[in-house]
């Protein structure tokens, strides 16, 4: 997994690629919590367009990001979900709890 951060005004956009699994999800979790809890960014956007695979530990990291965003009053947004990620979130019955958009433009819109 690779993760790169971009900043657009007070929005952090993470471009994630590769596989999010037991080996890599701690890095994603750390990055998300840093932006949300430490930097208190009002909006954190996760671009999952280049993610091939996500397992339950990856889903757990997303849930932690969501909970942290709720704690600090930020928005935590996902976009670019492919079939694999949608299936896993659907299986976990968690698809509806996330704020999900199709594109980056929608995700950073005021």
């Amino acid at each position: 997994m690779k993760i790169a951060a971009r900043h657009l005004d007070r929005i952090t956009i993470f471009d994630v690629s590769g596989d999010i699994d037991l080996a890599t999800s701690p890095e994603l979790r750390k990055a998300l919590l840093h932006e949300l809890r430490d930097q208190k960014m009002p909006r954190v956007v996760l671009n999952l367009g280049a993610v091939r695979y996500i397992d339950s530990s990856g889903v757990a990291s997303l849930v932690e990001g969501l909970k942290a965003s709720r704690d600090v009053g930020s928005r935590f947004i996902l976009f670019g979900l492919n079939k694999t990620i949608r299936e896993v979130l659907q299986l976990s019955k968690l698809l509806r709890i996330f704020e999900i958009y199709e594109s980056e433009e929608q995700s950073v819109a005021p």
Binding site: V59, S61, V63, L91, S92, L94
Partner: peptide
């Protein structure tokens, strides 16, 4: 329970569903 929104505990559910 899947209604319990928190990290963890999903793995076995995924296995059984799959």
């Amino acid at each position: 329970a899947l209604e319990d929104v928190r990290p963890g505990g999903l793995g076995l559910h995924f296995i059984r569903e799959s």
